[in-house]
Amino acid sequence: MERAAPRRRNSLFKNISAKIAAIPMAFTALVVFLGGTIWTVVYSFTNSKLLPRLNFVGFDQYTRLWSTPRWLVSVENLAIYGVLSLIFSLVIGFILAVAMDQKIRFENTFRTIFLYPFALSFIVTGLVWQWLLNPDLGVQHIVRSLGYTSFTFDPLYNADIVIYGVLIAGLWQGTGLIMVLMLAGLRGIDEEIWRAARVDGIPTWKTYVFIIIPMMRPVFVTTLVLIGSGIIKVYDLIVAQTGGGPGGASEVPAKYVYDLMFYSQNLGQGFAASTMMLVSVIVIVVPWAYFEFSGRKAR
């Protein structure tokens, strides 16, 4: 006992300067992130309107949320946008990176071109694609003026496909970054592996699929996290490109939260919606993290 006490103390004061330096961040994480989250969840059970009030109403806000057509459309849109943007970002990003890795000429130029959209904000991206997809100004107009007068392409004014119009803009903006990350991953693969694969007579595509991609796992995890967080918080793209229209067909959960909190002055409902967003993230992240970290320990 007598020995243990000073030792514990030692470990507490070990690296003391680093620990002191971490205090502000730890404080931020606990108070701002965790505290703010708990506060939001608690107030989602109240009927707060413009100002937060502790007047509990049970699950009323959630009942209303899940019976609101606009919220259901938002969730459906997020699912479509999320799945497709995940798949296409990864596939297009990887294929571009592989193409770029063939020691092509002007690689720098191409890389810059593909990465350039990422330097633009979602607001600019949204506006640019709003114009490009406007039937009287953009793609449809150009094709029609080439002589194909029956050509129709106006996704932003068709409620059934508007979310794909948004997806195009999202991919245009985001895949460049994924490509660059993948390219860095590819460059990190040892040349010896390629040589060994060639000696064994393994075709190039098989080498990519069965050897290189598994080796690039950390890169894929990074890109997944980046794409995933981008999907959940998509808001500005919608606001700039469609404003949620036509007829609310391109609404997303983040926009619902903002509109309910600030336009409709119904904080309780907005908090309930944001809590549901948090829950959906937890449902995806917790099993994955559990799997990821427990697996590592066993190793």
């Binding site: 609101t68 007829g247 409709s264």
Partner: peptide
């Protein structure tokens, strides 16, 4: 709040 909800219905109906 009510105005917003009614607006959602009419907007959807309109388009």
């Amino acid at each position: 709040d009510t105005t917003g909800q009614l607006q959602d219905v009419i907007d959807k109906f309109w388009h």
